[in-house]
Design a protein around this nucleic acid. Sequence first.
DNA 1: TTAGGTAGGCGTACAGCGCACGCTTACAGT
DNA 2: ACTGTAAGCGTGCGCTGTACGCCTACCTAA
Lengths: 203, 203
Amino acid sequence: MPRPKSLTQTALAVAALAVLDRDGLAALSMRAVANELGVGTMSLYRYVADRDELEAVAVEHILSQVDVDPPKKALWDKQVAVLAERVRTAIARHPNAVPLTMSHRHRCPSLLRWGEAVLGVLTRAGFTGEERVIALRVVLGYLIGATEMEHRSPLAGEGTDAMTGLSEKYPLLAETAGVAGGIPSDVEFRRGLEVVLSGLRRP
Amino acid sequence: MPRPKSLTQTALAVAALAVLDRDGLAALSMRAVANELGVGTMSLYRYVADRDELEAVAVEHILSQVDVDPPKKALWDKQVAVLAERVRTAIARHPNAVPLTMSHRHRCPSLLRWGEAVLGVLTRAGFTGEERVIALRVVLGYLIGATEMEHRSPLAGEGTDAMTGLSEKYPLLAETAGVAGGIPSDVEFRRGLEVVLSGLRRP
DNA sequence: TTAGGTAGGCGTACAGCGCACGCTTACAGT
DNA sequence: ACTGTAAGCGTGCGCTGTACGCCTACCTAA
């Protein structure tokens, strides 16, 4: 009956991510997103309740792209590894949004679906009860932590250079940073995940 | 020669944490901290360059309280576990500051000292080169991730209740949430950490 | 074809933020 | 007692999120 909507929540999410990718986290504002869409600021409030929800919608859009079907005919640990790496990859596509991803992940349906999928794999592998709780937590914990570290770390990125100067106070850290600089981050992630899965494999 | 300072960076940190603990993260502002100290807003800028530095000082104050001496005559994995739990404990004392702790940890001298201490333990345990890099990363990654999850998780706290309602869409997740609710969070952290350390013990 | 109701779009305004600037003022050394 | 120095802070600016209410495009019913 009335005038039809001209936008969608998804369109807001895409615009927010465009601003984020182009101008950084600090530049994300209701005005900026509205501008990106060529509409007035207050029009956005027809699609989201407030800024918080806009952020949540953007994060959901990032994570909705991860395929939660574990690869058939792979061992359970490989399946978990693949699922974890898919999340890492999706998040890595929007590095400026990492802090938002962290703060909104817990209300994100896609991540719930992902958790359900991981639990499916674990269940099929024989995990039950508290053991299964711990298994999910340790995998998700490592995933969250590793992703955070990768995008603002003392051992990689800008921190590495700044820290090699502190060799005298922190010799081991400086040496470690040097070695870490030679390892591609995806390899580092995979090897750390391998450690976690290795710990889960034993009784 | 001139008028002496009446405050210190530490005093700002304490005031900021007081505001944080009492009124939450959103209430932390330069005005609020100045009020807490009974001084004018702009006076704070004699002690910190900007709000960002105030946050960093507060985080440093939180983490400066962790003892980085590993317990003598314990096995290396126990030593690492103790060091990790000390950080968790320190962070947990100011739950409202967790997001700040995450975003400022990488410029925090106390955490560098902590990393140096962990590397010392790992080195004495025989870890070298890339293996040692991975070991530190996986421990720190789990620590960071687990701490984040503990303070805003889909499996604990308010999320648990909200999610048991979604049993139909996410049956495994709902069941897991129920089981998780019965495990004290420090036990959960310890058992997850045990998985990680178990993974580090092999080859 | 026209009139009316519904809801989309948005202009305005306000409280709060971080902080640049420059004045006032308390102190220490001569 | 005088003076140089830096602490303390009042004012103001540009920005934020968003409450409120007007205007108007659209779809339906007559």
